[in-house]
Structures are given as C-alpha cells and as structure tokens.
C-alpha cells in the first residue's frame, strides 16, 4: 500500500550505511526535493548509485560536500569536479561503470537476476579483474546486478494508488531504479486520483512504489526553482 507523504519519508527510511539509488541524468529527472531533504538528514557512510554525483555543490554534489557519501557507483562523475578531489584524498570510493552496464545492472537487479554477461568494456581497463566468457565465439564480461536499500526517484505524475508516469527525457534511470530497491520513494509534480491515468501509459505500476512525495523543487529553463 503506497503512502502519500512528505520528505519525512527520508528521515524515516534512510539510515547511515545504506545504499541509495538516485534517479536523474544530471539534474533532468533528478528527485531534487528528496535530495534536499537528504542534505538535512543526519546520516553518513552512504553508497550512492546514480549516473552522476550531481554538479559541484548542487543536488548530490551538496551531499558529497557534507561528507555523507562513502562510495559512489555511476558512469559519469566528470560532471562534478569535486568528485575527483574527494577520490584523490581517499575520502570517497568510486565504482565506474559504462552507462549501459550501470542501467542494465539496475534493471536486472530489480528483475531477480544476479548478474549478466555483456560485450561492453571487454578488453578495456573497466573489465580488469572481471570474469569473462566466450559465448558463440564472442567474448563477454560478467557484471553483477545492483540493488539498493532505498530508491529516490522522480516521475511526472502519480495516482493515489502509486502508479507513475514520466515526462520526456526526465524518465532516464527512474523506472529501472523503482524496481531495484527495498523501499521506493517517488517525488512527483502532480498527484491525481486513481483511475485517471491511462493504464496504457503507466510506466511504473504501483507495486514497485512505497511512498509518494509532492515535489517542491523543479528544474526550469532558469535553473532549479522552489515552487
């Protein structure tokens, strides 16, 4: 049963040492309101699974500055220059994955698959130390699936049952992350009555969603604004 709540869901469900999945491609489709709540929540040693660690001092970048992140798993940390500084000082562990491997690891994690063989990264530094297998004459590398304690995602709309629809390229990692965490908090721009979303358009059925939170921060042409 989905809970219609507010950012108290962060305080109630995120603990020190947790692994969190956080949706978004840069700030697009990023759960900005939930991340803001996380920066005000007293936790440490978090492992963050997200494509980027936000930007310098923005989004997850703020959480990094607070020293709350122990490890980040993602594909493109270059978008936040401070990530390299923290990493070089030994204050942050990084696990860099090709973006397709990251997204598939999340998808398969939510689908009850322990790992998968992909041809991406075979013969490169990112496959170092990983098991390989030749299938039908082609070499593949074994990648482990990913799961999290809590997923923080963003959708355009939720109905009161917890069904979600997404908007344009703000979809990105969000639907996959919704499947791969023990507890899923969805930040949405609009909450509508159940029965009003077209069943054909629902991308995340409600069984994946535990809590729905109304967004307060939105990305506009002028940047992130509080509404």
């Amino acid at each position: 049963m989905v809970q219609m709540t507010n950012t108290s869901a962060i305080h109630d469900h995120v603990k020190s040492g947790d692994t969190l999945m956080v949706g978004g491609f840069g700030l697009v489709g990023s759960p900005l309101t939930l991340i803001e709540a996380l920066t005000k929540h007293d936790v440490e040693d978090l492992t963050i699974i997200s494509n980027n660690v936000g930007e310098t001092g923005k989004g997850l970048g703020k959480l990094l500055q607070q020293g709350k992140i122990k490890k980040a798993i993602g594909s493109y940390f270059t978008s936040n220059r401070e990530v390299a500084d923290w990493y070089n000082q030994g204050k942050l562990e990084l696990d860099l994955l090709p973006q397709g491997t990251l997204s598939e690891a999340i998808r398969s994690g939510g689908a009850g698959i322990g790992g998968f063989y992909t041809k991406t990264a075979v013969g490169t530094d990112l496959a170092d130390g990983k098991e390989t297998k030749v299938i039908d004459g082609e070499t593949y590398v074994l990648e482990r699936s990913l799961k999290a304690d809590v997923a923080l995602i963003r959708a355009e709309k939720a109905d009161t049952k917890g069904n979600l629809v997404y908007y344009k390229t703000a979809r990105n990692f969000n639907p996959n992350m919704a499947t791969a965490a023990s507890y899923v908090i969805a930040e949405v721009d609009e909450i509508v009555e159940e029965g009003t979303l077209s069943p054909e358009l629902i991308a995340t059925p409600h069984l994946y969603v535990d809590a729905v939170v109304q967004s307060r921060y939105v990305l506009t042409k002028e940047g992130v604004v509080e509404r």
């Binding site: 594909s75 493109y76 940390f77 270059t78 978008s79 990530v83 390299a84 990493y87 070089n88 990084l94 860099l96 994955l97 090709p98 973006q99 397709g100 491997t101 041809k119 991406t120 990264a121 075979v122 490169t124 530094d125 990112l126």
Partner: peptide, 20 residues
C-alpha cells in the same frame, strides 16, 4: 574516454556505443 595521469572518473555511454 580517459587520459593517463588524469582522473579516470567518467565513461558515460562511449564503451556501449563503440561495441554496439
């Protein structure tokens, strides 16, 4: 995707595109 001696912290979709 990477320059030796610099921080290797981003790959994005480059490896997937090149292989696929």
């Amino acid at each position: 995707w990477a320059i030796p001696g610099k921080n290797i912290i981003g790959v994005g979709g480059a490896m997937d595109l090149l292989v696929g």
